[in-house]
Design a protein around this nucleic acid. Structure first.
Lengths: 170, 170
DNA sequence: GGAAGATGGTTGTATCTGACAACCAGATCG
DNA sequence: CGATCTGGTTGTCAGATACAACCATCTTCC
């Protein structure tokens, strides 16, 4: 079920790094979760709303189900997220050209503008940090972040969507 | 108020990397927030409970106020988080030796055990990803994660705790 | 030493976010 | 054409969090 214990001893330096990395990542997520909560009142969107808007800006128009899947939210919750974004004028619902049931959600100009503003502030914050590393290391970091994200989302999907197999011993 | 626009043009490679990095980080946080929600039912603790437990295991016993600050939660919320952890047997409240008002919160053996189990699973997941990078790059990544975290938490603290200055132009 | 204020924690309450279920409307398939 | 499937909305409930009011203890200062 889990890796043979020999894997643990195989490379002590790696093992140490993985622990440091894991803790560092954990800290980062924790702080960012708060930072994101904080972002709410700075930009008049909630965390989920912000991610929803980001998805629509970065990936273009999509249906509500697609958005829900992207955000790992129930479609009902996604629907309400879109309600809020629409009410605030950042997103528009249009009928889907090929399917009368479906919607095509798209960011409005105001939505793209807000997203640009948020991204600019984040980038601003990160630029100084990243500047200290050489381009090769930066590229490696970007690559690693992508891999971690894909691994985590693959794991989430493999574990059956909203939850791991209940009752199964982890 | 924000950086002079010349900064943007100063290093196009950096600018590109910062954007890639920002998006990658954003994706990571989003996916991990869900992954963390998922963790709830895997380990019978909520996200905040998990972070609270982690804090007590990694940083040793602390008061409730300290824990609340660490988690960026209101002390009332932290108190309820501890309620849950105590109910489940992962954390114990003891009187503080030097201050009759305060508590000393500490992880129990069961709490340390649960934390070890969670960390082991995370480490397991990350080991394979990290193994592809050479030690120097790994060290740089760990360093960068730490810096980002510190920068984000510094920014949070500078902005007055629970929220940025309302009404101020960002 | 005692009163006034500061500090650590808990409890009451309101809000917000999310999931689940029931439902409706349009599509697809027999 | 009817049965079923699929996309989306709405009703309802549980959980997380903040804010405020409160109590107990500590600190300060007269």
């Amino acid at each position: 079920m889990d890796a043979p214990s020999t894997a643990v001893a195989a490379d002590p330096a790696l093992e140490r790094d993985v622990h440091l990395f894991s803790d560092a990542l954990s800290d980062l997520i924790r702080v960012y979760q708060f930072r994101d909560r904080d972002r709410i009142c700075c930009y008049d969107v909630s965390v989920s709303q912000c991610y929803g808007l980001e998805a629509l800006v970065r990936r273009g128009p999509m249906t509500l189900n697609d958005l829900a899947a992207y955000l790992y939210l129930d479609k009902s919750t996604a629907s309400r997220v879109v309600d809020a974004l629409e009410r605030k004028g950042y997103v528009a619902r249009s009928p889907h050209p090929d399917d009368g049931r479906a919607l095509l959600l798209a960011a409005t100009a105001a939505g793209r503008d807000l997203h640009a503003r948020i991204e600019r502030d984040l980038v601003q914050e990160e630029r100084g940090l990243l500047a200290d590393f050489d381009p090769g290391t930066r590229a490696a970091m970007i690559q690693l972040l992508g891999r971690i994200t894909r691994a985590a989302s693959a794991r989430v999907e493999a574990s059956g969507g909203s939850c791991c197999r209940i009752g199964e011993k982890i």
